[in-house]
């Protein structure tokens, strides 16, 4: 399965496009998206997550077109946004169970699956507003993993992590990228470059350099 962007243009509201004619094709592996702030990394990931429909061009995952069949497309993906969850009076396990239901995890599997992803990211249950920023970062990662996605999109996953958490994240990404596409937007590519299959440098809304 490959993620393909074909001449994708995208932006917010009536504003100027953030992505302009972006094209690339990625196979399974760990891919880093780097670039200066405002270059379009987050917009690229939102487009790939099907949250921000492109103004022009096509986003495809294998044979599934993100615009023509958005539900089938989202079925395959897991997305961890850059922003952290701010949900007062909500416990992590309850929230993940709710998301698992939205992601189509069968009721009989939900409890086990939530426990498995929490274990995978090294998180124990607790009130989300009592979590540290590093724990909240791991919580959005756990949310992205709930449906065992074919395409995993992580926006700045290294932010707020301490060195030990960073090592765990590296190992987890190495494990996950063995048989799926993991696309990571980051300002700190050095932290994850060890196991990366390649890197896309984004400048002014387009891929200015690609290294495999």
């Amino acid at each position: 399965m490959r993620l393909e962007f074909s001449d994708v243009a995208a932006g917010y509201g009536a504003g100027p496009p953030v992505l302009t004619g972006m094209s690339f094709s990625l196979g399974p592996g760990l891919w880093l998206v780097t670039g200066p702030n405002g270059s379009g990394k987050t917009t690229l990931l939102r487009c790939a997550a099907g949250i921000l429909p492109p103004r022009a061009g096509q986003v495809r995952l294998g044979a599934v077109d993100a615009q023509a069949d958005p539900i089938a497309y989202r079925w395959h993906l897991g997305y961890a946004p850059q922003e952290l969850l701010d949900l007062p009076e909500t416990r992590a396990k309850a929230y993940l169970t709710y998301l698992a239901a939205l992601k189509g995890v069968r009721p009989a599997f939900r409890g086990k699956r939530v426990a498995a992803v929490m274990d995978q990211v090294g998180l124990s249950d607790g009130a989300i507003d009592a979590y540290s920023t590093g724990m909240r970062r791991r919580l959005v990662l756990a949310a992205a993993l709930l449906n065992d996605p074919d395409l995993l999109l992580l926006d700045e996953p290294t932010q707020d992590l301490d060195p030990a958490e960073l090592v765990q994240l590296r190992m987890l990404l190495a494990e996950l990228s063995a048989d799926r596409i993991v696309l990571v937007a980051t300002n700190l590519p050095d932290a994850l470059s060890g196991g990366a299959s390649g890197c896309l440098q984004i400048t002014a809304g387009g891929v200015s350099w690609r290294g495999d």
């Binding site: 099907g50 958005p70 989202r74 997305y79 952290l84 969850l85 701010d86």
Partner: peptide, 14 residues
């Protein structure tokens, strides 16, 4: 709002 909205919209629902 924020991350919660993005997470829900990345699920297979419209």
């Amino acid at each position: 709002r924020g991350a919660a909205l993005e997470l829900e919209l990345s699920c297979p629902v419209t």
